[in-house]
Amino acid sequence: MGQITKRAYRLSDGRDLIYFDDADTTLDPERGPDLREPAARPLTATMRQDVLTGEWISIAAARQNRVVLPPSHLDPLAPASPENPSEIPSLYDVAVFENKSPSFGPALSGPDAPEGLADLVRVGLGRSRQSVGRCEVVCFSPEHTGSLARLSLSRMRTVVEAWADRTAALSALPGVEQVFPFENRGEAIGVTLHHPHGQIYAYPYITPRTAQLIRTIEDYGGNLFEDILSFEQKSDRVLLRGEHWTAFVPFAARWPLEVHMLPHRHVPDLAATTDDERDEFSRLYSRLLRGVDALYDTPTPYISAWHQAPVHSHREDVRLMLQLTSPRREENKLKYLAGSEAAMGAFIADIPPETAAARLRAAIDKVDIDQKATAQP
């Protein structure tokens, strides 16, 4: 088997497109150009500060024009054809490109461009800035339908490599303070494309969730993530454990289905992981996702989120963590964020974490047994 290969191109309007070829790819290394007529990119969105919280709200009106659940012959993430001039000109294994209608985009000159993190931290009435940063789309497969769970192990490893590569590249952009790879899966989560894909956001600020984590770390006074890992590994909520990673249902899970994965050593982000860590994660994550889908007769909607350390600070304190959450609490029941959760941020859990962990372990075991039986001659 060869190595995962990265190939950089540009789309007709100047946006970046990067192909990541599997280590065992069968594709020709040459890729065709984007034959679409160059089009003007939308203006970078603006963001306004909520003076009650100090948080910034990006107002990206161009997102209103997004395609919603198109048929397969008009899939914008499929390889381009004469009938479908899509975002990706050639057949691919994994492809990453700049979002056409991003929530965060390139810096433009003007008085409302951010002047750095210190400028964004300050709180005041009527404050507005450009939503400087970057949004990328990560296509897991050229197929119109499917899921990350059903990819080959080689393809899963390519996806992990793409996440790590893009984390490093986006972290190096001027004005970026945090990089967030994630996957929204399922119409119940709000996805607008059936095509299996994820996204990466590069923010000009430290996100509210991470800012709260930093305050918690400062208040805790010890090695928070090392203590969490030790505490959870001794519990009956562990789902998977390898040499480099442990997956578990957290002690105070908010969602009916919630899984965290922590590396066994401190790393601030995906770019800092080793090849061995990426290899093992690919295997464990594939098993986890298959188990999540085995819980019910239909695929489970979820959000899978990589929580990474800020680019320029707290990198010795904030450890890389994957958090997968789903609102699905039964076969035909979803948890909705009602008054307490939506208005006050005070979650009410429907399922004890130990019960959820037992169900997930049983589902993962069933998938493992079925795969072994299928593999036998």
Results as ranks from 00 to 15, higher is better:
residue 5 T to L: 07
residue 9 Y to Q: 09
residue 12 S to K: 02
residue 15 R to T: 06
residue 16 D to A: 09
residue 18 I to K: 00
residue 18 I to P: 02
residue 20 F to W: 14
residue 21 D to C: 05
residue 25 T to V: 08
residue 28 D to G: 02
residue 32 G to D: 14
residue 34 D to V: 15
residue 36 R to I: 05
residue 36 R to L: 11
residue 41 R to N: 15
residue 41 R to H: 07
residue 50 D to Q: 11
residue 51 V to A: 14
residue 51 V to S: 09
residue 52 L to D: 13
residue 55 E to M: 13
residue 56 W to N: 06
residue 59 I to E: 14
residue 60 A to G: 11
residue 61 A to D: 15
residue 65 N to S: 12
residue 65 N to K: 15
residue 67 V to I: 15
residue 78 A to R: 07
residue 78 A to L: 05
residue 78 A to K: 12
residue 80 A to C: 03
residue 86 S to D: 11
residue 87 E to R: 11
residue 89 P to V: 10
residue 94 V to S: 04
residue 98 E to K: 09
residue 98 E to R: 13
residue 99 N to G: 03
residue 101 S to K: 05
residue 105 G to Q: 04
residue 112 D to M: 04
residue 114 P to I: 03
residue 119 D to Y: 04
residue 125 L to G: 12
residue 131 S to Y: 04
residue 132 V to T: 06
residue 134 R to M: 01
residue 137 V to R: 01
residue 138 V to W: 01
residue 139 C to W: 01
residue 140 F to M: 05
residue 143 E to A: 10
residue 145 T to C: 01
residue 151 L to S: 06
residue 153 L to V: 03
residue 157 R to I: 07
residue 160 V to W: 00
residue 166 R to S: 03
residue 166 R to P: 07
residue 168 A to S: 11
residue 176 V to L: 06
residue 177 E to L: 09
residue 182 F to H: 06
residue 184 N to K: 00
residue 192 T to C: 12
residue 198 G to N: 08
residue 204 P to M: 00
residue 204 P to Y: 00
residue 208 P to N: 02
residue 212 Q to D: 00
residue 219 D to Y: 12
residue 220 Y to E: 02
residue 222 G to L: 06
residue 226 E to N: 11
residue 238 V to A: 04
residue 243 E to M: 07
residue 252 A to H: 15
residue 257 L to H: 05
residue 262 L to G: 08
residue 264 H to F: 05
residue 264 H to S: 11
residue 268 P to Q: 10
residue 269 D to Y: 03
residue 275 D to L: 12
residue 276 D to K: 09
residue 277 E to S: 12
residue 279 D to R: 14
residue 283 R to D: 13
residue 283 R to P: 07
residue 285 Y to W: 14
residue 285 Y to F: 15
residue 289 L to G: 02
residue 289 L to K: 00
residue 312 H to T: 13
residue 313 S to K: 11
residue 313 S to D: 14
residue 315 R to H: 01
residue 315 R to I: 01
residue 316 E to C: 05
residue 323 Q to G: 13
residue 323 Q to S: 14
residue 334 L to Q: 13
residue 341 E to P: 08
residue 341 E to H: 04
residue 345 G to T: 10
residue 349 A to P: 07
residue 359 R to P: 03
residue 363 A to D: 00
residue 364 I to F: 02
residue 365 D to F: 13
residue 368 D to C: 10
residue 368 D to T: 15
residue 368 D to R: 10
residue 369 I to E: 10
residue 371 Q to S: 11
residue 373 A to V: 10
